[in-house]
Measured scan of single mutants.
Amino acid sequence: TRVETATETAWISLVTALHLVLGLSAVLGLLLLRWQFPAHYRRLRHALW
């Protein structure tokens, strides 16, 4: 049971790290898009909202 718990903890930390990385890359990508294509971003936002 001790090994299982350790594996579970490792998986949880791995998944958390993955989610953090994905979230950060998504935010960075959005910022980059907004910085590179302001007109396109505004049009996209206008279409979405």
Score class of each variant (00 low, 15 high):
residue 1 T to H: 12
residue 1 T to E: 11
residue 1 T to Y: 14
residue 1 T to D: 07
residue 1 T to S: 11
residue 3 V to W: 01
residue 3 V to T: 06
residue 3 V to H: 05
residue 3 V to Y: 03
residue 4 E to N: 12
residue 4 E to G: 09
residue 4 E to D: 10
residue 4 E to C: 08
residue 4 E to T: 13
residue 5 T to K: 01
residue 5 T to F: 01
residue 5 T to L: 02
residue 5 T to W: 00
residue 6 A to V: 01
residue 7 T to L: 12
residue 7 T to Y: 12
residue 7 T to G: 08
residue 7 T to M: 14
residue 7 T to W: 13
residue 8 E to N: 00
residue 9 T to P: 14
residue 9 T to Q: 10
residue 9 T to N: 08
residue 9 T to R: 11
residue 10 A to W: 07
residue 11 W to R: 01
residue 11 W to Q: 00
residue 12 I to Q: 08
residue 12 I to C: 04
residue 13 S to K: 02
residue 13 S to N: 05
residue 13 S to A: 14
residue 14 L to E: 02
residue 14 L to V: 06
residue 14 L to I: 05
residue 15 V to H: 02
residue 15 V to C: 01
residue 16 T to G: 03
residue 16 T to Y: 05
residue 17 A to G: 07
residue 17 A to V: 09
residue 17 A to F: 07
residue 18 L to I: 04
residue 18 L to E: 02
residue 18 L to V: 07
residue 18 L to D: 05
residue 19 H to R: 04
residue 19 H to G: 07
residue 21 V to I: 08
residue 21 V to G: 07
residue 21 V to M: 09
residue 22 L to P: 03
residue 22 L to I: 14
residue 22 L to R: 04
residue 22 L to F: 06
residue 22 L to S: 12
residue 23 G to I: 07
residue 23 G to K: 06
residue 23 G to F: 14
residue 24 L to K: 04
residue 24 L to G: 02
residue 24 L to W: 00
residue 24 L to Y: 01
residue 25 S to A: 13
residue 25 S to Q: 06
residue 25 S to R: 04
residue 26 A to I: 09
residue 26 A to Y: 06
residue 26 A to K: 07
residue 27 V to D: 03
residue 27 V to P: 01
residue 27 V to W: 09
residue 27 V to C: 11
residue 27 V to S: 09
residue 27 V to E: 06
residue 28 L to S: 06
residue 28 L to K: 06
residue 28 L to G: 03
residue 28 L to I: 06
residue 29 G to N: 04
residue 29 G to I: 12
residue 29 G to H: 04
residue 29 G to F: 12
residue 30 L to K: 02
residue 31 L to T: 13
residue 31 L to H: 04
residue 31 L to G: 04
residue 32 L to F: 00
residue 32 L to M: 15
residue 32 L to D: 04
residue 32 L to G: 03
residue 33 L to M: 15
residue 33 L to K: 08
residue 33 L to Q: 06
residue 33 L to Y: 00
residue 33 L to S: 00
residue 34 R to P: 01
residue 34 R to M: 00
residue 34 R to D: 07
residue 35 W to H: 15
residue 35 W to Q: 15
residue 35 W to T: 15
residue 35 W to Y: 15
residue 36 Q to W: 15
residue 36 Q to S: 15
residue 36 Q to N: 15
residue 36 Q to T: 15
residue 36 Q to A: 15
residue 37 F to A: 09
residue 37 F to S: 08
residue 37 F to G: 02
residue 37 F to P: 00
residue 38 P to D: 15
residue 38 P to E: 13
residue 38 P to Y: 11
residue 38 P to R: 14
residue 39 A to S: 12
residue 40 H to Q: 13
residue 40 H to G: 13
residue 40 H to C: 13
residue 40 H to P: 15
residue 40 H to T: 08
residue 40 H to Y: 11
residue 41 Y to K: 01
residue 41 Y to I: 14
residue 41 Y to A: 15
residue 41 Y to S: 11
residue 42 R to Y: 13
residue 42 R to L: 14
residue 42 R to F: 06
residue 43 R to S: 10
residue 44 L to Q: 00
residue 44 L to P: 01
residue 44 L to C: 12
residue 45 R to Y: 15
residue 45 R to M: 15
residue 45 R to E: 00
residue 46 H to I: 00
residue 46 H to E: 10
residue 46 H to P: 07
residue 46 H to Y: 00
residue 46 H to R: 08
residue 46 H to L: 08
residue 47 A to C: 15
residue 47 A to L: 09
residue 48 L to P: 00
residue 48 L to K: 09
residue 49 W to P: 00
